[in-house]
Structures are given as C-alpha cells and as structure tokens.
Amino acid sequence: MPRRADLVLAFVAGVPLFALSVVVAVLSVPGVRAGLLVGACLVAHAAVAYRRDTWAFFVVAAAFGVQVAVTGLFLVLPSAALFPLAVYSRAAYGRRYPPLIVGLAGAGVAAARFATDSSVAAADLGPNPWLLFGLLAAVVVAAWGFGLYRRTQLAYIDLLRERARDAAARATAAERARIAREMHDVVAHALAVIVAQARGGRFAPARAQEILATIEDTGRTALTDMRAAVGVLRAAPEEAQRQPLPGLADLPGLLERTRSAGLPVAEIVRGTARPLGPGTELVAYRVVQEALTNTLKHAGPGAGGTVLLEWAEDGLHLTVSDDGRSTSVAGTGNGLAGMRERVGAVGGAVEVRTGEAGGFVVEARLPYRT
C-alpha cells in the first residue's frame, strides 16, 4: 500500500501537471503519438504514488523511454518534472548510485533526441545538444543530491529513535532493578525479624503475646512498604515522585524493630547533621537495614550491634557493626550487591568486612547534597 503522503503528492502534483501535459501533447503531436504520450504520462503519475519502491522508479524511467521513442518534444510536457522527482526518491529511499546512472543516461538520450527531432528542427528550436545535456544533467545531479541529503536525514532520525529505544530499555531495566532492591530490602529484613521472633518464641512461651505483636507489627510494616514499592509501578511519574520514602528520620523505628527481634542495637551520632537529599537518605536507611538484616541472620545468639552516624566534612560516614560470631563476609548475596549499587549511584563508597574480633562491619561514605 502506498503511503498517505505519497498519495497526496501524486494527486496534488498529478492533476495540474497531467492536465497541462494532455493539452500540450494533443496540440504538439496530434494523432496516435499524442495518445502514447498521454498514456505514458498517466503511468508515470500513477507510479509516483509508490515512489519509495524500486519498481516505481523503473516504471517512471520506462514511461519516459516511451515518450523519447515517440518524439523529442516530450521535454516540453509538464509531466517531465516527474523524472527528477523519481531520481530524488530512489536516492533517498533506495540504493545510491543506480538513480544517478539512469538519470545521466536519460539526460544524454533526451538531449540527443530533442536536438535531432524533425519537429524541433523544422521550428528552429533546437539548442546546442551539449548545452541541453549539461542543463538536464545538472537537474539530475541536483535531484540526486537532495535525495542523498534526505537519506542522511532519515538515517539520523532512525539513529535517534534507536537511541531513544535503548535509553528506554535501560531506564526500564534500571527501574526494575531498583524495585527489586526495594522489595529485597523490605522482605528480607521483615522475614529476618519474624524468623528471629519465632525462634525466640519457642524458648519463651511466656512472651508469646509480645512476640506475636512484634511479628504482626513487622509484617504490617513490610506490607505497607511493599505496597508503596509496587504502587510506584502503577502511579504516574509525578505521583511516583511524591511517594513517601524512608530516610534517616525512620531509623529509630527500624532500630526498635530490630531490638524487638532480639538484637540489641546501639545508635551513636557524632557531629552536626547536614542535608543529604531524599535519595541519599533512602540509601543510608537501606544500608542500615541490610546490614542489620545480615546481623540477624548470621551473628548468632547473644550478639549486639552498633550503628554509628558520623557527620564528617566530606559526607556522612555510616558504620554498622556487630560482635557476633560471623568470621566471613557474605559478599556475594543480592542484598550486599544491591547495597553497593545504591551507594555507588549517589556517588558514595561502601566497604564490607569482618571486624578485628569477628563480627560483621559495613562502612559507607555518603556525600552531602550540593
């Protein structure tokens, strides 16, 4: 099917040009030859609707070949303007050099036919063949050049579209990774607290009500966080940006839930707080959450933890450590990998190691907002 723009072009250009060509053909070349000229013009105008296809170019060239065979006066037909258009279209949408070769050959044949036509000679209208050839060749080369320029434009547009698709794919992958990290942090910490509480409940039946209340509160908080994370996927971009995100102000609640799970955690703050920005505060919160989750999983019974927030000159130095029995760094998990990605995304650095006396240590440096 021809494109709508090409159909419009074929109609808008075809109606006046074809009508004038019919009049000129009938007046200049009466008889059967006039009918052949009109038929060839009609075929060429119809092919313009498919000008982006290879066959349409050769149909137009063949139609003008028929006109050359009929008379050299075909050059005075207004429909002769279709040939440069065909050269332009083929250079823009097809192979580069065939339209130029065919166009220059057609210019030579047309110049020779016009200059040697008996009707032209009888009317003493015959120009210098070389001058006519130069003029026709210039028209062909100009049409071919404009076609190449359009070809370059189309290639550039395709490149921009491809880059846009790649950027959209990368953004989608990054968003999926971000949501995966959020879900992991929320679920992993909540389950670690619930498992620790359930384990403790087996040995302390008298605290069953308190333990169940803590499990319920932890599960409700995790469910709320999960709904918020999933809601970002469903919300419009401007609504997603307004979704509440945990930050440093939410650390006391996180530490309290961790203590209720049986892990004593001390919080130490040094220096004067400075603005980090909501994104960096979220990273700080998730670093503490992931580190405490690992402590709950691996530190063992009787362990304690410390969260140190040191407001230094170059940024917030965040250290989460425990005195548990862990002697190796579980550095291959998804949680720690996500932690490194989060910290790196805000321009910070993180180190995960074992303490000198054992235990698990996470040190992160987060830059201030500038």
Rank of each mutant, 00 (worst) to 15 (best):
R353K: 13
V12L: 14
L366V: 03
A69D: 02
T214V: 02
A249H: 14
G338T: 03
A337W: 10
G262I: 01
V43T: 07
R95D: 15
R52D: 09
R3S: 14
F360G: 01
R96L: 10
L160W: 11
L308F: 05
T221W: 09
A349T: 15
V265K: 01
D323C: 00
P30A: 03
E356H: 03
V329T: 01
W55F: 08
L336Q: 06
A235F: 09
N334F: 07
A188I: 03
E290P: 08
A112V: 14
A192P: 02
S89K: 08
L251W: 08
L82M: 11
E256H: 02
G359H: 02
G200N: 00
E281H: 02
V26I: 15
G103F: 05
R234G: 13
G134M: 00
G333Y: 01
L100G: 10
D314M: 06
G305P: 08
V139E: 09
A121E: 15
A92L: 07
L191P: 00
A222P: 13
T295E: 04
D217G: 00
L132A: 09
A337H: 07
E239F: 00
A213N: 04
S260I: 00
L159C: 10
G145W: 14
L292R: 01
P129M: 04
M183G: 11
I101D: 13
